[in-house]
């Protein structure tokens, strides 16, 4: 019998590497095509031809890709400090003087901390202020302090506010100039850093207020927004190998919702599933359900969404698997529904 040491084992070579939570985590798949900081570059491009555009942030320029704009247009960039009420109040004041502000912070702070300022100073006077919220839904491994799982639910009740949940770098690049040109206020759920490029593979352009069919299908209808459209497309591919024909309709504009397109898609008899990176309360699922019920096309609609509770901290792949947002969980869900 050999002597055992009381000392703890400090060697790591034999231990499996743990998955860890991170505030800034990419949801891009390994090897996936991505574009760096699409929001920052799109804002710079728009500002080159539109002198009204200014950028503001609340001590999160580097983490919302606003630093790209700040570097290109230092005189048109305004650091407001870690003061979200000031960020949005000042953005309103700048818009009152004829400028077109893009104001960035994290989605949790825009929605929870500075709601009153967005509501009364920006939305009520219907000003062209574009609020850009990073880390929407479950895109950070930090817990509920940073996970904006209910931002759309909070904002959908606000009159005048346009809500955009982009899928990828294509959506963001095309949405930014349209938001600048559109007169009222908007809330853009920001995907930042190296953002997947997905929609260039499809016959698709972003149009404010429009949902678009990305692929047709006779058995199942996916209606999705945000990064879940990427997952929906992946799941549709995998389901094709199971001989299940899945249509994917992408609705990056959550409000005003494209009722006509969605109603048209709900008409054929298919299994209908909504997919969103957001709590199942008050988001895309309820927007689709509301349209269906209001127009008498009542039928079963299944949500793939985050649960109505505060979520765990952890690594994004772990959490997406745990809460059903991963591609494999989507495939399982469809197979079990059709079983």
């Amino acid at each position: 019998m050999s002597t055992t040491s009381e000392a703890p084992d400090t060697t790591t070579a034999t231990k499996p590497k743990l998955r860890t939570s991170a505030m800034i985590a990419s949801f891009a798949d390994p090897g996936q095509k991505t574009a760096p900081a699409p929001f920052g570059h799109a804002l710079v491009k728009a500002a080159e031809t539109d002198p009204r555009i200014v950028g503001l942030t609340a001590d999160l320029g580097k983490y919302t890709d606003m630093h790209i704009f700040a570097k290109a247009f230092p005189d048109r960039f305004f650091q407001m400090g870690m003061a979200e009420q000031l960020l949005l109040g000042a953005a309103a004041g700048m818009a009152e003087t004829g400028l077109v502000p893009f104001a960035s912070t994290y989605a949790v702070f825009a929605a929870r901390r500075a709601y009153d300022f967005l509501c009364l100073d920006i939305a009520e006077p219907n000003l062209n202020v574009n609020v850009v919220g990073g880390l929407p839904g479950l895109t950070t491994g930090y817990g509920p302090s940073h996970q904006a799982t209910e931002d759309i639910a909070i904002f959908r009740g606000m009159p005048n506010l346009t809500i955009i949940d982009p899928c990828d770098s294509v959506d963001i690049e095309q949405a930014v100039p349209q938001l600048a040109a559109s007169p009222g206020p908007s809330y853009l759920r920001l995907l930042r850093g190296n953002v997947p490029t997905v929609l260039d593979e499809y016959d698709y352009t972003f149009e404010l207020g429009k949902a678009k069919q990305l692929r047709p299908g006779t058995d199942v209808l996916f209606i999705s927004s945000g990064l879940m459209t990427m997952r929906a497309l992946q799941a549709a591919e995998q389901l094709a190998s199971h001989h299940i024909d899945v249509a994917v309709v992408h609705s990056p504009t959550i409000k005003p919702f494209d009722t006509a397109t969605v109603l048209g898609e709900l008409a054929p008899d298919r299994l209908v599933i909504t997919l969103e990176n957001h709590t199942e309360v008050g988001g895309l699922f309820e927007a689709v359900a509301g349209v269906a019920v209001r127009h008498g096309s009542g039928r079963r609609i299944i949500p793939i969404a985050l649960p109505d509770r505060f979520l765990d901290a952890g690594a994004l792949p772990t959490l997406h698997e745990r809460y059903g947002l991963s591609t494999s969980r989507i495939v399982q869900k469809v197979l079990s529904e059709l079983a």
Partner: peptide, 13 residues
């Protein structure tokens, strides 16, 4: 807060 934005906006222009 709005006044700060207006003051910034007028000065910028």
């Amino acid at each position: 807060t709005v006044a700060v934005g207006m003051a910034l906006g007028m000065r910028l222009q």
